[in-house]
Nucleic acid binder design. Structure first.
Lengths: 235, 235
DNA sequence: CGGCGACGATAACGTAGTTCTCGCTCTGCG
DNA sequence: CGCAGAGCGAGAACTACGTTATCGTCGCCG
């Protein structure tokens, strides 16, 4: 985390020690700065958790973090940057969580876990996760800052690509481009649910997974899988 | 459109003429009110078209419509109600458009047209339609006013259910509940695209359709369809 | 120890949504 | 035809929020 921009050295090697000197002289400040940024982020997370809403004000963040507006705008270009930072943190956590949950099993098992978790996180109703609405609010950011959000999705996307690649290598998939298939599964899994008309209850994660499964694997593979679920879930 | 609430008559039949009398006496005012509302809506649509953005102010609407703020808040509970009204109008247009485009062909052809149009409308990039961003902004409304938006989706949903029902009757679909399948196809088709990481270009409507197709129909049906596309598109 | 950069508190500004006030007009009705 | 009252137009005012600027202070480094 510290010393992240040392590689900006371009020409002379003498720039190295100069950078290092500057680095050492400003290390304390940088650490303090990082701590302050983190305090802002933590305060924001707390408030979002408490209100179960992202409709907070910058002022609330500032009050909670025992800092000042001045500092806030010194570290963030504005509210949207704070949100983006939160979203990236949350994305890292999410990827880690999915990694963990989808560690074992064949590629389709792993993909299933990923889809279930993702869809669950994006559902407005579910409260299984602690911060359920970062993805919900990602929809907002996606409109105002599409590029940044897309970039933030990259690690998750690449992880899914890895799984789908494995599935393709194992011959589970219909012929096609794995990256495209991963992209479309990701897209489908991260839709805020609860769309369709009145009486219908929202689509569940399991339904979404069934949908994606059949979309990307041939019938015989899917049939073999669903038959297997009757028995235990060994290796 | 006029005389929509006559059916509130409950007890005596004599309420009919009274209602009718009141109706006639207030018809003029009601027509004027309807016209004013429509002027607001038209102005909003114009401005949204021009700016290609839904970031307009109430004041702009008022100026354009040659009316006053006072009137605006007399007819709408706030900006969100205007947006909701616009969205419902747009939804009606969209359903009509999809109805037209998906009139002919077997149920899967019709569903394909519906998905392509829907996905196209929801894509931020496409400019094929005149008002491309009502669905984009529906995502926003979906978070702040989920119930109303869900209700607004109902006619579209029911139309899709009709198509999917036909497909089920024709034996094209995997066994399952048509309403659920329609709901999930709708949900997938109305996601704002452009999610996945950096270099990847967004999912196209055709890709989305292929995805949905395989998700709901068995392989042999899909194979028969894709073979058929080589030839012409007769009945 | 002196300067300097960072920080905290707070006021101020711009914008947007919403409400209020006032005066006029136009409709409905006797 | 004339009156009463509701509805409406114009615009100011109010509120909330994001953002920026000012100024005094404190701590660190030389």
């Amino acid at each position: 985390m510290a010393r992240a921009d040392e590689d900006e050295v371009e020409a002379g090697g003498d720039a190295v020690w100069r950078e290092r000197a500057i680095e050492r002289s400003t290390r304390g400040a940088r650490e303090r700065a990082a701590m302050r940024v983190q305090q802002f982020l933590d305060a924001a997370r707390e408030i979002i958790s408490e209100k179960d809403s992202i409709e907070f004000t910058v002022q609330e963040i500032v009050d909670r973090s025992k800092q000042s507006l001045r500092s806030f705008y010194q570290y963030f270009d504005g509210k949207h940057e704070l949100l983006l930072a939160l979203f990236e943190e949350e994305m890292a956590d999410t990827v880690a969580r999915i990694r963990e949950a989808s560690a074992d099993g064949d590629p389709l098992d792993r993909l299933e876990q990923a889809v279930l978790i993702l869809y669950d996180i994006c559902s407005p109703e579910r409260r299984s996760s602690i911060q359920p609405l970062f993805f919900e609010f990602a929809q907002l950011l996606l409109i105002s800052h599409p590029d940044e959000v897309s970039r933030a999705y990259t690690p998750l996307f690449e992880y899914l690509v890895g799984i789908v690649d494995d599935a393709a290598k194992a011959g589970f998939l219909r012929p096609g481009k794995p990256r495209r298939q991963a992209a479309i599964v990701l897209q489908a899994s991260t839709t805020t649910a609860g769309r369709s008309g009145g009486g219908t209850h929202p689509i569940t994660g399991e339904e979404m997974w069934e949908f994606c499964l059949h979309a990307i694997v041939p019938d015989d593979v899917a049939a073999a899988r669903s038959k297997r679920t009757s028995r235990s879930k060994s290796t």
